[in-house]
Design a protein around this nucleic acid. Structure first.
Lengths: 219, 219
DNA sequence: ATAATTTTTTAGACAAACCTAAAAATTAAT
DNA sequence: ATTAATTTTTAGGTTTGTCTAAAAAATTAT
């Protein structure tokens, strides 16, 4: 099913506010998030109810139907993949990407998203660490480890960075540390809590405790 | 100035139909191109006239004002850059890209386009050889040469491919020949009219007359 | 030059997505 | 348990972009 621009925004908003659960979402909460008026929310909820995308009962709030949820997840997937593109390929800072991704998420082409996903190396999550739903709408949450706690000899895929300051991002860029890269702990140095690691099995670098505290990996 | 989705489509249509010249564009021509009705065109032309983007006189057709032309060129630039992205980065075939680029061209962010342009290596033209206007709306047409006619020792940037069959595109892909690559004629072989060339000064390959007939370069 | 044809415009409607202001329902407070 | 406050909905209106059908202008044919 294809939705209008506006419908997509509402579906995504409900999904965000109910955090993937069954929780009822209130009209005012949505109005605030979407920067619109409560009356507009009501209008749209009635429309989406008729379309079978939400369950809406007057004065009670809404939940997504399974169909509606799948649509919302698809939009979210697009949003997150474009965010990865903007950061990893176009070198945007993390603060600048949301607004642009809000536009890009409405581009309608399944094959485009497939290819973008592949082009980006099938990233596990966006720069902020939010897990990207896979092509069939499943959200596979792998356990994540703080780099600091990884044992010697262990490899993992860099899947999120906690600090999003420009300084840190530049540090990472210079050392070719990027989302989706494979990082392997070669040796942990007790003295200063730093560690020697390799990136993509290629070259060895030493990263300090401050750095390891800000990198999350999936095994 | 910011325009609506629809306004942008109309501006681009006028620009396409007048081929960058002052030529008057008729209502029916636009209706056909935009797959809409003549009455809708009239409505929009009156609106754009009020906004100062076109000069419209009843029953006489429209032309773009300088402002309107600059807007149209900006949209075209975005369209063409996204097409390069789709082909060069996401490996789309040339037939599949237009529809997607029609959507992407409406994404509103100057910085996004700047960075995309840079990411793509500031391409001179789209895969079909249409020149991409630069950031300040100028269309710089460099003379283009058929590869076949290039003298030994000469280098140029691949700027268009005439044949867009899947077979040819695959041939190019395999040999790492892509839009924007630097091609240098090492030796022209009289016997079969083939030539030895290097791609990006890196490796030498031999390309037949049939190939050179389908590659255009700018010096 | 007049009639026939085609093109273009006007007039009036409609759907989508929003709004404001007032009414109704729910929730909180005494 | 009423009253007060808040939330939500309804009713009616606006803008954008589309449409159809009819009128007007321009073009082409006789």
């Amino acid at each position: 099913m294809k939705h209008t621009h506006a419908e997509e925004n509402y579906l995504k908003a409900i999904y965000m506010l109910s955090e993937g659960e069954e929780r009822l979402v209130s009209t005012t909460a949505m109005a605030e998030l979407l920067r619109t008026r409560a009356a507009s929310i009501t209008d749209m909820m009635q429309k989406l109810h008729h379309k079978g995308l939400v369950v809406y009962r007057k004065y009670q709030g809404v939940t997504l139907t399974e169909t509606g949820k799948q649509s919302a997840i698809k939009i979210l997937r697009k949003h997150l993949l474009w965010e990865v593109f903007l950061v990893e390929k176009l070198k945007f800072g993390w603060n600048e990407i949301h607004e642009i991704a809000e536009q890009l998420e409405h581009i309608d082409s399944d094959i485009l998203i497939d290819r973008l996903d592949h082009f980006l190396g099938n990233p596990y999550c966006n720069p902020h660490g939010i897990v990207i739903p896979n092509a069939d709408g499943k959200i596979v949450t792998k356990p994540r480890l703080l780099m600091t706690d990884v044992a010697e000899g262990t490899s993992g895929i860099i899947s999120a960075i906690k600090d999003d300051s420009v300084a840190f991002l530049q540090y990472l860029g210079k050392r070719n540390i990027y989302l989706g890269a494979k990082m392997t702990v070669i040796e942990k140095i007790k003295f200063d809590e730093s560690m020697d690691v390799t990136i993509d099995n290629q070259y060895k670098i030493n990263i300090s405790r401050k750095i390891t505290d800000n990198i999350l990996i999936t095994l």
